[in-house]
Amino acid sequence: MASTACFMIVSRNDIPIYEAEVGAAVKEEAAHQHQFILHAALDIVQDLAWTTSAMFLKAVDRFNDLVVSVYVTAGHTRLMLLHDSRNDDGIKSFFQEVHELYIKILLNPLYIPGSRITSSCFDTKVRALARKYL
């Protein structure tokens, strides 16, 4: 498992709707740095997303030794992962499964698309997936 990994779902309006520090070493003071890096990576994603039909964009941006991998859903919701390990296959599987979970969240009639995901069940599952794949 990667020592640093920050997972975030960003709505199409660029608002974070879910965030989780899924790395082995969770450092509180790095939280803002992770947000900064992921936020800045959106600039790259916005160009890159239209150049390919694949949802998984691989590593789009890096900051020092931290890499940002992005998965863009059809609704232009972006699943972003900041990590320091090179495990493309694992990350891809992680994204695909989280995408499925996200779709299930969307199917909930009480969930307004683009609002914050507060489901604790979703959170637990995402963390389990992170342990499995990252």
Partner: peptide
């Protein structure tokens, strides 16, 4: 430089300023 890029990369601009 990020600000003057076409199209402007504002988030990068902000991040590097910080």
């Amino acid at each position: 430089c990020y600000l003057f890029a076409k199209p402007p990369m504002l988030r990068k601009y902000g991040f590097h300023l910080v």
